[in-house]
Design a binder for these strands. Structure first.
Lengths: 180, 180
DNA sequence: AACAGCATGTAACTTGTTACATGATTTA
DNA sequence: TAAATCATGTAACAAGTTACATGCTGTT
């Protein structure tokens, strides 16, 4: 809040801006799909409405722009694209943007932390639920990797897959321990 | 939003409630320290003001209560404790509370995703910054584990330590790959 | 003809943060 | 005696969600 100049934006703004950085035009709807497939694994999955809001802010700052296609009144869609100023802003953020501590929200572990209020097997069931979810995530990540060429994107996906394997193993072990 | 009955509360409310579940009295200030040492590693580190707000809500619902000590006007502090209703609510949440997908916010990886806008070594420097932070976290976790007796809490900390090791290794490898 | 997916957007609301304000107690 | 820590709390704001409203396009 101390930094009110135009160069400061919340991380979410850069997350959305970056989705537009591989040159090309995309609709807000497409950006939501893209976000779910990429940034959701390393940062957060913004709601559709959040993406609309973010695009408006970015456009107000001249970091993105859009054209309407087709020009006819009915059935028109907005195609967004990053501007040179937007590329500069993204570069500045990647290079010098402020560091943020990593955050992990895992309700299975939060429940385990407070698990003394229930029977062990009930707790284990909740952990299993997380395991099933993580397994699914892993499959989605592998499918995404298979269809990704861009080298940095692949590195990130590989990192996420490795982490997913580790978390899966640790969660399975936790579940077993709880059932002993 | 569809579920407006008294049994529904956001996860953060249960996170704070659970901090009071090992019987005993704690001030809001103490809860903040506790939160930073425990739930911060698996869920989120609420701001001090968030804890005050949460306690008020929980007290309004009869899930926690407090007494003021000492009774003198000057220098008084509020000692909170969980009520039987609070224990029931916590148990119900651990047992049946709705499942939430896990979220990880890692800006080093988000930067990597968009790293094509800078030189590889600049990106690697940002990853190193994350590595240093993760290393520090790991040390804090190990210190916390050493002073923790409660079995479930230990299981969670061990899980978090294992994950931290994995993430550290993956991040170091990423940094090296970026410098090749 | 029905349904899933594509597409845009607003309004009301909840959640959570930062900054501010205050003051006592303990330790160096 | 100065600084760090303990302790409480409010106000203004930012951020993000859910629910709602609308309608086209392509597939079955």
């Amino acid at each position: 809040m101390s930094n009110r100049n135009t160069t400061w934006l919340p991380t979410t703004a850069y997350a959305v801006l970056g989705l537009l950085s591989p040159r090309g035009e995309r609709t807000a709807y497409e950006l939501k799909q893209l976000a779910d497939a990429t940034i959701a694994h390393v940062y957060w999955a913004p709601a559709q409405s959040a993406i609309y809001t973010e695009l408006q802010r970015l456009e107000g700052l001249g970091l993105v722009e859009h054209r309407v296609e087709p020009e006819t009144e009915l059935r028109s869609r907005r195609l967004y694209r990053i501007t040179p100023a937007g590329e500069d802003a993204l570069r500045a953020w990647v290079r010098d943007g402020r560091f943020e501590a990593a955050v992990t929200k895992n309700t299975a572990l939060l429940r385990t932390l407070y698990g003394h209020v229930v029977e062990r097997h009930e707790l284990a069931a909740r952990v299993d639920e997380h395991v099933a979810w993580a397994q699914e995530q892993l499959e989605r990540l592998e499918a995404t990797l298979a269809s990704t060429q861009e080298p940095l994107r692949r590195l990130v996906l590989e990192w996420a897959i490795e982490r997913a394997h580790g978390e899966l193993a640790a969660s399975r072990r936790l579940s077993e321990t709880l059932r002993e």
